[in-house]
């Protein structure tokens, strides 16, 4: 069997895979807004690169950041494999669909050098960006991440929705695991048949029913604490000298890499 019977077994310990990573001091001390901005800027820069060596340099920087964020190779590997599923598909077709100097001929199909190069560039870019996102943003506590988004100008209502959702995902995932266990105790084995699909339909229905019950309890609890139609964000972001230096270093690095990419 390709997948574990339970389908979520890898998630039983920690739903968020980057849980338990502890960042190096210099990274942990940075303002969270700076980390998110850096992740975004770095991603945009990576997208604009066109040369292999500049992309590989960006990849090295991304890996350095990931190790500073305390992400282990095991955490990264699992996440990147998920990405490669989609990529594989694209990468296998691209060499044959991009016109150019032929590299390899398979019957009626011809793989072009330009196609292979383009496929590899895409693969590199996607991976570098995901590593940076996981390192700079994904290793933050979801709550801290949400607050930083709000401080960067995302609508507060959206951020509150995100914060509530993160909390509820943990709770409902536990609920799901209880129901999944109850089904398996009754000898349920997922198969490719109508019975399985019906059972999953009921399972999802029950998840929704329980989530609504939770929502009602939350609302009751909020009312009882004097909720009057507004929520607040209570963090106080602080920008220190180290952040200024890091931002400057980031700026220099991004400019250097993009100019090098253009010139060489």
């Amino acid at each position: 069997m390709a997948e574990p019977a339970d389908g979520c077994s890898t998630l039983t310990t920690a739903l968020f895979p980057t849980d338990g990573a502890s960042a190096a001091d210099w990274l942990a001390a940075r303002d969270t807004r700076l980390r998110l901005l850096a992740a975004g800027l770095f991603a945009l820069m990576t997208l604009s690169l066109t040369q292999f060596w500049t992309l590989l340099t960006a990849g090295l920087i991304a890996l350095t950041l990931a190790s500073a964020a305390g992400l282990t190779l095991r955490m990264l590997r699992g996440r990147l494999l998920a990405l490669e599923g989609f990529m594989l598909f694209l990468l296998l077709t691209l060499p044959f669909t991009v016109p150019g100097e032929p590299l390899l001929t398979l019957g009626p199909l011809t793989a072009s050098r330009a196609g292979v190069a383009q496929a590899l560039l895409i693969l590199l870019k996607a991976n570098v960006i995901v590593i940076t996102l996981l390192a700079l943003a994904g290793s933050l506590e979801p709550v801290v991440f949400g607050h930083a988004l709000a401080r960067l100008g995302l609508p507060e209502k959206l951020v509150h929705l995100l914060l509530f959702t993160v909390r509820q995902i943990h709770l409902l995932h536990q609920e799901y695991q209880r129901m999944d266990q109850a089904m398996r105790v009754r000898a349920f084995r997922p198969r490719s048949d109508r019975h399985t699909w019906n059972s999953y339909g009921w399972l999802i229905g029950m998840l929704l029913v329980r989530s609504l019950a939770r929502a009602r309890r939350i609302m009751g609890a909020m009312r009882c604490r004097g909720f009057h139609g507004r929520l607040y964000l209570l963090d106080t972001p602080t920008w220190n000298r180290g952040d200024t230096w890091s931002a400057a270093a980031l700026g220099v690095m991004v400019t250097a890499l993009t100019t090098a990419d253009r010139l060489c």
């Binding site: 959702t165 909390r167 509820q168 409902l172 989530s211 929502a215 609302m219």
Partner: peptide, 9 residues
């Protein structure tokens, strides 16, 4: 809260 609980589900 309801929107969040359902989207979490």
């Amino acid at each position: 809260p309801a929107a969040a609980a359902l989207s979490a589900a």
